[in-house]
C-alpha cells in the first residue's frame, strides 16, 4: 500500500451483486426504479404486468439475457431468451403470443455464432407457440459488451377468470414446486473458468406455459405462480412472503435436488436454495386444491418430479423458515449478493 489511503467509498457504484436477484437487486429496484416509475400496475411486482385494453386482459413483460457462455448444456442464450420471457407471461396465467427480440452485439462476434443463436431462438419460439414479430439490432464497440446480449419482450392474453398475484397467498395455503432445483445455475457454473467440474448437468431451460395451463385446468384455486430464476427458490419464497405479508414454512426433505447439483453444491459450499432455475415454477394454492394441482403437475412432462414443499402461515409474516433434514427449524433468508464458492 502507498502512503496515502485509497480513495473513498465505492458504495455508490453498481456491483455485480445488484444483478443477483437477491437483496441488493431488491434494494436497487426499490430505491431507483420504483421510486421513479411508481404506479399501481408496477406496484404488484409480479413477473409480468397485466393491463386491460378495451376489455382484453394483456400480459406484458420484458427480460434481458446476459448469460456467459452463450452456449451451455441444455440451451443457449437464444432459447433462454424465449423461455425466460414466455415463463414470465405464463406465471401470470397468460397464453403467450408474441415476442420482440433485440440484439446488442459486440463488434467482432462471428456471424456464424449469431446465426446459431438466432436459429435456436426461432426454434424455441416455434416450440413455445409464440411468434417473433418485431426486433432491433445494435452493435457496440469491442470491449463495450460481452459478445451478445438479447432482450425479449412478450405479449400474451389472460383469461378473465384467471387472477394470479403474489399478494393473494393466505395462511393455510400449500406451496408446490415443479421439480428439482439448481440445474440451470450449476450447468452455467460448470462452464466457468477456474472451477472445472464435469457431470451430466444440463440447464432446465424450458417454456412452462403448457404446465401452467394444465394446472389452471385442474383448479382455479391457484393464488400465484413464479419461476425461481436468479436468486433461486429462496428469493421467490421471500418475495411471496413479503408481498402477501405472510410467513412460509418449507421442509428441506421435500425439496428435490439432483445428485449433480448436490455434489457441486457440497464441493463449492453453495446452497441449492439460492441457485438459479430456468424451467421450474413455484405455486401457492388453496389447501383444498393442492392434491389436484400436484397431480396435474405430475401428469405434465415438465412437472413429473413436482412436490409439496411447504405451507403458508400467519405466524411469522415476511419470514421464510425451513425444517432442516435433522429436525430443527431455521430461517431461509434472501441472499444479499451472488453466492460465491467458498473454501471454508
Amino acid at each position: 500500500m502507498t502512503a496515502c489511503p485509497l480513495p473513498l467509498p465505492a458504495g455508490d457504484r453498481v456491483l455485480l451483486g445488484h444483478g443477483s436477484g437477491g437483496k441488493l437487486s431488491a434494494d436497487l429496484l426499490r430505491d431507483v426504479f420504483l421510486a421513479a416509475f411508481r404506479n399501481p400496475v408496477l406496484a404488484r411486482l409480479d413477473d409480468q404486468a397485466i393491463v386491460s385494453i378495451n376489455g382484453l386482459r394483456l400480459a406484458f413483460t420484458t427480460d434481458s439475457f446476459v448469460v456467459k457462455p452463450l452456449f451451455f448444456p441444455g440451451g443457449d442464450i437464444g432459447s433462454l431468451a424465449v423461455h425466460g420471457t414466455v415463463n414470465d407471461l405464463a406465471m401470470g396465467g397468460a397464453q403467450p403470443l408474441y415476442l420482440s427480440a433485440a440484439f446488442i452485439i459486440e463488434e467482432g462476434l462471428p456471424i456464424s455464432v449469431l446465426r446459431r443463436v438466432v436459429a435456436s431462438l426461432q426454434e424455441a419460439a416455434a416450440g413455445a407457440g409464440v411468434t417473433v414479430v418485431t426486433g432491433d439490432t445494435k452493435v457496440v464497440e469491442k470491449g463495450s459488451g460481452d459478445g451478445l446480449f438479447i432482450n425479449t419482450t412478450g405479449l400474451g392474453v389472460v383469461a378473465d377468470t384467471v387472477r394470479l398475484s403474489a399478494d393473494q397467498a393466505r395462511p393455510g395455503d400449500r406451496v408446490l414446486l415443479s421439480g428439482p432445483i439448481g440445474d440451470h445455475g450449476i450447468a452455467i457454473l460448470a462452464q466457468r473458468e477456474g472451477l472445472e467440474f464435469e457431470g451430466s448437468i444440463a440447464s432446465d431451460s424450458a417454456p412452462l406455459h403448457t404446465l401452467v395451463a394444465a394446472m389452471l385446468a385442474a383448479s382455479r384455486d391457484i393464488r400465484c405462480l413464479r419461476d425461481p430464476t436468479r436468486g433461486g427458490l429462496s428469493s421467490t419464497l421471500n418475495e411471496f412472503a413479503a408481498q402477501a405479508q405472510v410467513g412460509i414454512e418449507i421442509d428441506e426433505r421435500a425439496i428435490p435436488v439432483r445428485e449433480a447439483v448436490r455434489g457441486a453444491c457440497e464441493l463449492l459450499g453453495l446452497d441449492p436454495l439460492y441457485v438459479a432455475n430456468e424451467g421450474k415454477l413455484v405455486a401457492v394454492v388453496a389447501p383444498g386444491a393442492a392434491e389436484r394441482v400436484l397431480a396435474a403437475m405430475r401428469g405434465h412432462p415438465l412437472g413429473r418430479e413436482a412436490a409439496l414443499i411447504g405451507t403458508v402461515t400467519a405466524v411469522h409474516p415476511r419470514l421464510v423458515t425451513m425444517r432442516t433434514v435433522v429436525g430443527p427449524t431455521r430461517i431461509v433468508d434472501m441472499l444479499s449478493g451472488d453466492q460465491l464458492p467458498r473454501i471454508c
Partner: peptide, 21 residues
C-alpha cells in the same frame, strides 16, 4: 482469490469493488 475473500471489507473497499472499478 478464493471466493470467500472477495467480499471482505478493507478500510474502504473490497475486492469485488476493485473488480467493479
Amino acid at each position: 482469490s478464493y471466493g470467500d475473500m472477495l467480499r471482505v471489507p478493507g478500510t474502504s473497499l473490497d475486492l469485488l469493488r476493485v473488480k467493479a472499478d
